[in-house]
Simulated assay, not measured.
Amino acid sequence: MKLRRVTAASAAVLALAVAATACGSDDKDDSSGSSSGGGNKKITVGIKFDQPGIGQKTPQGYTGFDVDVATYIAKQLGYSEDQIQWKEAKSADRETMLQRGDVDFIAASYSINDERAAKVDFAGPYLLAHQDVLIRADDKSIKSPEDLNSKKLCSVTGSTSAQNVKDKLAPKAQLQQYPTYSACLTGVQSGAIDALTTDDSILAGYASQANFKGKFKLGGFKMTNENYGIGVKKGSDLKAKINTALEKMVSDKSWDKAVEANFGPAEYKNEPAPKIGNIVK
């Protein structure tokens, strides 16, 4: 009889343990959500906060071509707009942010190159831009890339733009690195800097701002090809999913609408939408 009582008690304890385990599993499943973004799950996206026409944080929210592209991608992945958490992705921080898992993907005028591709994966490209310079409207001394020799040339920390010019076109250019494009632009406006160099799409966004109209001009040099890609962590399955979303964005004309909405006011002459995997050298 004593043996039966102990066995019965053990069985009762075991039953409670199984029930507790089952309840724990249910709770975990309910709270974990899914990769498609159910419930309160968020997707974190890195963008630029200070690039008009590309990615800009304003009192009304976030605007720009990259913001529109990222929003479209997120929706295709199953996330609504209010489930997107935007995070600033400065040029020097992008690879680290992806490697640490701070963001799910980055859409931040992120040009694809071999050095970056060794650290992260890229979906796309989704835009072909060209490196150019922005100078003061009354500056008649810079008419070609070679005229940048001995000039103070600004770009942001972590960007390869200014170094490209010095290495290939104007070896005597005096490189200046500032933390943001806005800081470079202020330097150009004051005369402390002669030219700001980066992609023409970014420069057009700045030049088209109401408070800067008539004060700056693009050089129109098209010095390099810049293939904008969506950065994801190395080996992430998001790359294939984002490529599918980008293909759909082009086919349903949402890409064209985003280009017109963000670059149209600056009369930016964009290239046609690139094909996925087609890197223009």
Rank of each mutant, 00 (worst) to 15 (best):
H130K: 12
Q131L: 10
V133R: 01
L134S: 11
R136L: 01
A137L: 02
D138Q: 14
D139R: 05
K140Q: 10
S141Y: 15
K143C: 15
S144Q: 07
P145H: 07
D147W: 05
N149G: 01
K151V: 00
K152A: 00
L153E: 07
C154Y: 01
C154T: 14
V156D: 12
T157A: 10
T157V: 13
S159G: 06
A162M: 03
K166Y: 10
D167W: 03
D167F: 00
D167Y: 04
L169H: 05
A170Y: 09
K172W: 15
A173P: 04
Q176W: 10
S182N: 13
A183C: 09
C184T: 04
C184E: 00
G187N: 02
S190N: 13
S190Y: 01
I193E: 00
D194S: 07
T197N: 13
T197C: 11
D199K: 10
D199N: 13
I202R: 12
A204M: 05
Y206Q: 02
Y206R: 04
S208A: 14
A210M: 13
G214W: 10
K217E: 07
K217T: 03
L218D: 09
L218H: 11
L218N: 13
G219C: 03
G219M: 01
G220K: 01
G220W: 00
M223D: 05
T224R: 12
N225A: 08
N227I: 15
G231F: 02
S236P: 11
S236V: 11
L238K: 02
K241Q: 08
K241W: 14
I242P: 00
N243H: 05
T244V: 07
T244I: 09
T244R: 08
K248T: 13
K248S: 12
M249P: 02
D252P: 06
D252C: 11
S254V: 13
V259W: 05
E260F: 02
N262R: 01
N262M: 06
N262H: 01
F263C: 07
P265T: 02
E267S: 15
K269S: 14
N270T: 11
E271P: 07
P272H: 02
